[in-house]
Computed example of a mutant assay.
Amino acid sequence: MDNKLYVGNLPYSMGDDDLQQHFSAFGQVTSAKVMMDRDSGRSKGFGFVEMGSGDEAQAAIRGMNGESFGGREMVVNVARPREERPAGGFGGGGNRGGFQRRSY
């Protein structure tokens, strides 16, 4: 069992320390990170928690998934591996709304 958990639907006021404190009731928390928006600096409403063992992670899922916190029902499950995205960000080619040349 993997010990890294995805935690979704978090209150936007929750920080890393709050997240760690809530999950520490289920065992050793080796890391807790609320994901923040780069531009605004606000929480994105989800984060990741790494527990000390797979058994502790499973206990945290059972204990925290569906629990209401700050008026929101949390979603807790095993984190999936990060998917690789293509570099660049804009896709490939195209005119990008600019002037088109014609060859005669």
Rank of each mutant, 00 (worst) to 15 (best):
S103F: 15
Y6T: 04
E83A: 15
A79F: 05
Q20V: 01
G93I: 05
N65G: 09
V34N: 06
R101L: 12
G97M: 04
M74L: 15
S40N: 04
M35K: 08
G45H: 03
L10H: 02
D55E: 15
E83M: 10
S103D: 12
Q28W: 02
G97K: 01
S103G: 10
G88N: 07
F99A: 15
M1T: 10
V49Y: 02
V49C: 02
R102T: 14
D55A: 15
A25I: 02
N65R: 05
R42T: 08
G41Y: 10
N95H: 11
K44N: 07
E73P: 00
G97A: 10
F69S: 06
A60W: 01
L5R: 01
Y104G: 14
D17R: 13
V34W: 06
L10E: 02
K44V: 05
G70S: 07
S13Q: 13
R80F: 06
G41N: 09
G92I: 06
S31Y: 10
P86V: 13
G15I: 09
N95I: 07
Y12E: 10
D18P: 01
V78D: 04
E56P: 00
A32E: 03
R62W: 05
A79K: 04
S103E: 13
G47N: 03
R96P: 00
D18A: 09
P86D: 12
V34E: 05
G94E: 09
F90R: 10
D18V: 01
N9G: 02
G94M: 06
F69K: 07
G45V: 02
A79M: 07
G71K: 01
K33V: 13
G15E: 13
N95W: 11
R101K: 08
S13K: 08
M36P: 00
Y104A: 12
G70Q: 01
S24A: 14
A60I: 01
T30G: 01
A32P: 00
R96I: 04
G70V: 01
D39E: 14
M36S: 03
P86K: 13
G45M: 02
M1F: 07
Y12Q: 11
E67S: 04
M51T: 05
Q58C: 01
S13H: 14
L5P: 00
